[in-house]
């Protein structure tokens, strides 16, 4: 086969590329250039330093495969960064990595397979695509602790038919061992936990710089509507937040609701965080649509909880905490991904 490998410069995609070359396939490596500069500005010299792409380039050279950097900065800004900012300004809790998978990575790269004369796309995600007799199933990666099927839950048959995740069959330890055995420079590279465009940790600083207009001061009220404090902008808050409220009340208080239209943050006791059902937008299924009992995962490495899916609504068997609009939800049957969606609203 001819294989296009999306290489991030990390160990997983390095090994994914290596496994493909070892398997005798004809491999082309690409890195998506998504972002330039901490504030989005192009460096004045018109050059873009990207140490991760340098790692990917070196790995590609070690493997003896052609390698290209593809410029998706505009698409990323429009599809991911602007949305991230809008979401926070609207009181939602987005997951930009999933948004990137949804709007940039898979769509764009898959559409370019013919351009590279490639048959399939390979990435370094920890997940598996299984041929189940005419249907492509998306399954959790073998290493459950590293499983990334949640962030891939928007993929459908069209995508799964031409996408493979070779490291999904192995543990992270195996991945690193193979990388070391092959002498790949990324073998010991630490995992990146940060949102790529925010840098280290502080997404609120990023929001303040990027969207100062989103920081409209307003009141903090309790669940009866009484004003108990003030804030500098709803983008500073997420549902379930306990710290940094600047409000002294006897019992622990949490952000239980955010009303961006009135620039109001509502705080309340923990029981107000309990969510009984959620309404979703952008619901997709990996194969045929399903209804009824499903296992629901609403955090990247969260556990699954039972719920009932009906149309675009999920009713939890037991009410859940830590759920906010903007988060992605994935449906599972055992280790098989059935589909997913994005939380539009929640109900207690």
């Amino acid at each position: 086969m001819r294989v296009l490998v999306a290489m991030s410069g990390g160990v997983d995609s390095s090994v994914a590329a290596a496994l493909m070359t070892e398997g005798g396939h004809e491999v082309v490596g690409v890195t998506l250039k998504l972002w330039s500069g901490p504030d989005g500005e192009m460096p004045t010299a018109g050059c873009c330093t990207l140490s991760d792409s340098e790692d990917a380039r070196r790995v590609a050279a070690t493997l003896g495969i052609p390698y290209y950097v593809l410029d998706y900065t505009e698409e990323f800004r429009g599809g991911v960064v602007d949305r991230f900012v809008t979401d926070y300004a609207s009181g939602r809790t987005p997951n930009p990595c999933i948004e990137c998978n949804r709007t940039v990575k898979f769509d764009r790269l898959l559409s370019r397979l013919p351009e590279f004369d490639c048959d399939i796309l390979v990435t370094g995600h920890h997940a598996r695509v299984v041929d189940a007799g005419g249907t492509w199933e998306l399954r959790r990666g073998t290493d459950r602790a590293k499983d990334q099927s949640y962030v891939l839950s928007m993929l459908g048959q069209r995508e799964l038919a031409v996408t493979r995740f070779p490291v999904g069959e192995m543990t992270k330890t195996d991945v690193r061992r193979i990388a070391a055995d092959l002498g790949l420079r990324t073998a010991d590279k630490p995992e990146s936990m940060d949102i790529c465009f925010v840098g280290q940790g502080d997404y609120r600083g990023f929001l303040r710089r990027t969207a100062p207009d989103a920081f409209v001061p307003g009141p903090i009220v309790d669940t009866t509507g009484e004003v108990v404090g003030s804030h500098q902008g709803v983008a500073d808050f997420t549902i379930g937040q306990r710290r940094g409220l600047g409000v002294a009340v006897g019992d622990p208080r949490y952000v239980v609701d955010i009303d961006p239209d009135r620039a109001t943050v509502v705080i309340g006791p923990r029981r107000h965080l309990k969510v009984g059902s959620i309404h979703l937008r952008d619901v997709t299924f990996t194969a045929d649509p399903v209804e009824g009992g499903v296992s629901v995962q609403y955090r990247a490495h969260g556990e699954v909880v039972p719920g009932v899916l009906a149309g675009s609504t999920v009713v939890f068997e037991e009410r859940q905490e830590g759920i906010a609009p903007g988060q992605t939800v994935a449906f599972y049957a055992d280790d098989r991904v059935l589909g997913g969606g994005v939380i539009a609203s929640t109900e207690r």
Binding site: V28, K33, G46, C47, C48, L50, S53, P66, Y68, V69
Partner: peptide, 17 residues
Amino acid sequence: DRAGVAASAGSACQSGA
């Protein structure tokens, strides 16, 4: 490049894009 012809866009980033 895949067909064996080396050309450019006039100026290139360090990243090669």
